[in-house]
Simulated scan of single mutants.
Amino acid sequence: MPDTITLQVARYRPDADAAPTTQEYVVPLREEWAVLDGLNYIKDRLDGTLSFRWSCRMGICGSCGMTVNGNPVLTCGTFLTDYAPGPIRIEPLANFPVVRDLVVEIEDFLRKLPAVKPWLVREDEQGVDDVEFLQTPAQLAEYQQYSMCINCMLCYAACPVYALEPDFLGPAAIALAQRYNLDSRDQGAHQRLDLLATAQGVWACTYVGECTSACPKGVDPAGAIQRYKLTAATRTLRSVLMPWAAR
């Protein structure tokens, strides 16, 4: 195995550059180094002008998502040796405007996330802060998978629907809504229905499944969307055939 590997890094400053360019850097190829370590080596030793996001380096914060050799990944959990002998092409996440180099604008995602009410909604007089709500292991298992989302937005970068329809709520937001819909403590599922069961919600999804393939935490947002489609269709059918039951 060689001692070094070449990183082909996308560089772009929208306010100064006409189009993105690619710059090559040679970094040490060490068995324990992730792609993020290679980028930090560039930042610290070779080119301090390179811009990218990272925080925890433990696959928890979700901030170091980038496109590596065409695939959206967390660069802290993707190792240089997996791509040896190289080169490795590193680009910003697809489907998001580029702020600078490998940093993307996430305002659209942050705007859509609260729209699905990703918190426990209670309609009775006792809020979740006033009383303890016990759950069985089976009740926890209903939504636990969807609670693992770290908002890394890799699913948005992988989603062909979001690429064509920017109004689409997107995989992570819908999966997070489903996490609360399935929580036995929540009473807000019907409040989320008007937003989720729309052309911009679950019905926009064509079930390509790339969101689930890209998810580093096994959340399965594609499965959450399809599960909610069944819920929405069932409620619509009941309201047509049994209108008294929908009241």
Rank of each mutant, 00 (worst) to 15 (best):
F96D: 07
P97E: 12
P97Y: 13
V98Y: 10
V99H: 08
R100G: 14
R100E: 15
L102C: 08
V103K: 05
V104Q: 13
E105V: 00
I106T: 12
I106S: 03
I106Q: 04
L110T: 03
L113W: 06
V116D: 03
W119I: 12
W119R: 04
W119H: 09
E123D: 11
D124M: 03
D124L: 03
Q126R: 13
V128R: 11
D130G: 14
V131D: 11
V131A: 11
V131G: 06
E132F: 15
E132K: 15
E132M: 12
E132I: 12
F133A: 07
L134K: 15
Q135N: 13
Q135R: 15
T136S: 13
P137I: 08
P137N: 08
A138Y: 04
L140K: 11
A141H: 05
E142Q: 10
Y143S: 10
Y143R: 09
Y143T: 09
Y143I: 05
Y143W: 10
Q144E: 14
Q145S: 06
Y146K: 01
S147A: 14
M148H: 09
I150V: 14
N151G: 03
C152K: 07
M153E: 07
M153D: 03
M153W: 11
C155E: 02
Y156D: 09
Y156E: 12
A157W: 04
A158V: 07
C159W: 06
P160N: 03
V161P: 00
V161I: 09
L164R: 15
L164C: 02
L164K: 15
D167P: 03
F168D: 01
P171A: 06
P171G: 02
A172H: 00
A173D: 02
I174L: 05
A175L: 00
A175N: 06
A177M: 05
R179H: 01
Y180W: 01
S184W: 02
S184P: 10
R185C: 04
R185V: 02
R185Y: 07
D186W: 11
H190G: 12
Q191F: 15
Q191H: 14
D194Y: 14
